[in-house]
């Protein structure tokens, strides 16, 4: 296996000095070139898991291997695309994209040539010399993706990269991400809270339970290598994921709003008294 996450445990200490377990016995495997998504309610530790893979944080127990190498510290073979693009405002688009290449001691000319190639792939050739503040949210995220791709990473880690974008931009970027993924055959590990996004993009959806973060289920999405997948299939998978998540969502809401909240009581659901006797 290309990416193996083995028995990961992680806890944090909260403001009340209590240890809170965020990740409990996480095991995930992914093949080279696959596209894996993690969905889960907010606060389920999915971002924490991503930081562990990136090496920005250390697990309490268990280990993570990428391409046979145990993850110990952050490195350019496992780059992250964050929710906010995180471009350096003091560098131009081109300088931002070549940042990592220069760290690899690549010559300036070579780095720039490579950066331009990738920027072309994300359709930003015209904005090479712009500064990040001159770009829209979607463009910034493209630059961030280009900056990550140019490193030719073993694995591309994406932490809710599109959640701050508007719907249209997100749709366009979904398409482009899929194209890039096919073209570069990079392994993508994608974190999101958007079920549709997860189902549309990935081959495998890992559904997280919350507090502590545990794997609730792993669902394979019917192959979409040919590019077209009927909406009904997507919808079906989506609903499957949603039904798994329902319980978790309720758990979070209850914790946040108190016990009087029930996700299932809504105008859609009929009152029991309405069909009295029909089960007899």
């Amino acid at each position: 296996m290309y990416l193996t996450i083995n028995g990961i445990e992680k806890s944090f200490v909260n403001e009340k000095k209590e240890r809170v377990k965020v990740l409990d016995n996480i095991n995930i495997e992914a093949e080279k070139g696959s596209f894996v998504s993690i969905v889960g309610p907010s606060g389920c530790g999915k971002s924490t898991l991503l930081y562990l893979i990136a090496g920005l944080d250390r697990p309490d127990a268990g280990d993570i291997r990428v391409a046979g190498q145990k993850v110990k510290k952050p490195g350019p073979e496992r780059v992250v695309v964050f929710q906010e693009a995180g471009l350096f405002p003091w560098l131009t688009v081109l300088e931002n994209v070549t940042y990592g290449l220069k760290l690899k001691k690549m010559s300036k000319a070579e780095a720039e040539a490579k950066a331009l190639e990738v920027l072309k792939m994300v359709h930003l050739s015209r904005y090479v010399d712009s500064y990040p503040h001159q770009l829209s949210g979607g463009m910034k995220q493209r630059v961030a993706i280009a900056r990550a791709l140019v490193m030719e990473p073993d694995i591309l880690l994406m932490d809710e990269p599109f959640s701050a974008l508007d719907e249209q931009t997100r749709m366009v970027l979904h398409k482009e991400l899929i194209e890039i993924w096919r073209k570069t055959k990079v392994t993508i590990f994608f974190i999101t809270h958007n079920i549709r996004e997860a189902v549309q993009l990935s081959e495998k959806v890992v559904v997280f339970a919350t507090r502590p973060g545990k794997i609730k289920d792993i669902i394979s999405v019917p192959s979409m290598k040919d590019g077209v997948m009927p909406d009904s299939v997507t919808l079906h998978t989506e609903q499957k994921v949603l039904s798994i998540l329902q319980e978790e969502i309720e758990k979070v809401l209850k914790e946040e709003m108190g016990d009087d909240y029930s996700f299932k009581t809504g105008p859609v659901h009929r009152n029991d008294s309405g069909d009295m006797g029909s089960h007899i």
């Binding site: 920005l56 490195g75 760290l103 490193m151």
Partner: peptide, 19 residues
């Protein structure tokens, strides 16, 4: 965020400080 980004690209030590 900037610090995390730089670290994932392998920046550390003086380079991290400078860039």
């Amino acid at each position: 965020l900037y610090q995390r980004v730089a670290k994932t690209y392998g920046s550390s030590g003086f380079h991290f400080l400078r860039t």
